[in-house]
């Protein structure tokens, strides 16, 4: 599997800044949703409808063409590391502790990006910052990127038929501005910066938390040996990825594309062979 080779260079940028990305430390997320709102404000993303989903305090549900930051709220009957709460002492016998995990999800800006690989128009491209962005003037809404994403991030917008997702604020970072979501985040749960620095910081924070007694704490998508070659936006989670609606072992679909073509060629051969076979030999 590819390691984090220089993605920008691979994409043909010979002169380029360091790869920029996000480290989202969910252990300090307070679920204020400032990131969701700031993203919509800055990028003019339309609202997502007024339905009460009742998924704890999450009424957004998931990332979509109209939501590029999504804050998940997970209520669990488990202790929050060393935390003490009287909840489990409720006079009802069968009560455990509670913990309330919150996490702000976003496009992962994968090293091996399925969406980008399969885009037949080149609308999706790799920026000089190593991020993955849709060029809206090119996208023809073929929709191929959507099932190609192992994380269910990118989506097609009803109103204009084009694919939309987080741009990692391409327009802001080009001007040395922090992306809107990270800027708005009060607790620095969303940290923006050069990927290498972020990875170091993340490791330190993880050790801290494990020490403090958060047994399930883990880094997600920070390993360049994983199925997507590591991501430009990686996370510190306090539980299994799937509890947050994230795939536990994502793999970029195009990893096997060569083999797929080989099989297709073989099948094509058989197809041709059978075609010939049908016609050779005795008439009537």
């Amino acid at each position: 599997m590819t390691t984090t080779s220089d993605v920008a260079a691979r994409a043909g940028w010979d002169e380029h800044p360091p790869r920029m990305g996000f480290f989202t430390d969910t252990s300090v997320c307070i679920g204020c949703k400032a990131c969701e709102v700031a993203c919509k404000e800055w990028n003019g993303v339309p609202d997502d409808g007024y339905d009460l989903l009742g998924l704890s305090y999450d009424n957004t549900g998931s990332l979509s063409a109209n939501t590029w930051r999504h804050v998940a709220f997970i209520e669990q009957s488990k202790p929050f590391g060393p935390q003490t709460t009287g909840i489990d002492e409720a006079p009802t016998g069968d009560r455990d502790e509670v913990r309330w995990l919150m996490s702000s999800d976003v496009c992962k800006h994968c090293t091996e990006a399925g969406c980008l690989d399969v885009c037949p128009t080149g609308a999706l491209f790799r920026t000089e910052f190593g991020t993955v962005v849709v060029q809206q003037d090119i996208c023809n809404g073929c929709g191929y990127c959507i099932p190609a994403c192992p994380f269910g991030v990118i989506d097609r917008r009803e109103s204009d038929g084009k694919a939309w997702k987080c741009t990692l604020c391409y327009d802001r970072i080009g001007e040395d501005q922090t992306p809107a979501c990270a800027k708005a985040c009060p607790t620095e749960s969303i940290q923006y910066g050069p990927l290498d620095e972020l990875r170091e910081r993340a490791q330190g924070r993880l050790d801290q938390l494990v020490e403090a007694g958060h047994a399930d704490a883990q880094l997600y998508l920070e390993d360049s040996a994983d199925g997507v070659g590591g991501a430009g936006a990686f996370f510190l989670l306090l539980d299994k990825p799937e509890a947050y609606g994230l795939p536990p072992d994502p793999v970029v679909p195009t990893r096997d594309v060569r083999a797929m073509w080989r099989h297709a060629a073989a099948a094509a051969g058989v197809f041709a062979g059978l075609g010939v076979a049908a016609f050779v030999g005795r008439r009537r």
Partner: peptide, 15 residues
Amino acid sequence: RYTRTSALADIHVPM
């Protein structure tokens, strides 16, 4: 109540 504040506290006292 166990609120967003409780979620990050060391001790939560429901009363």
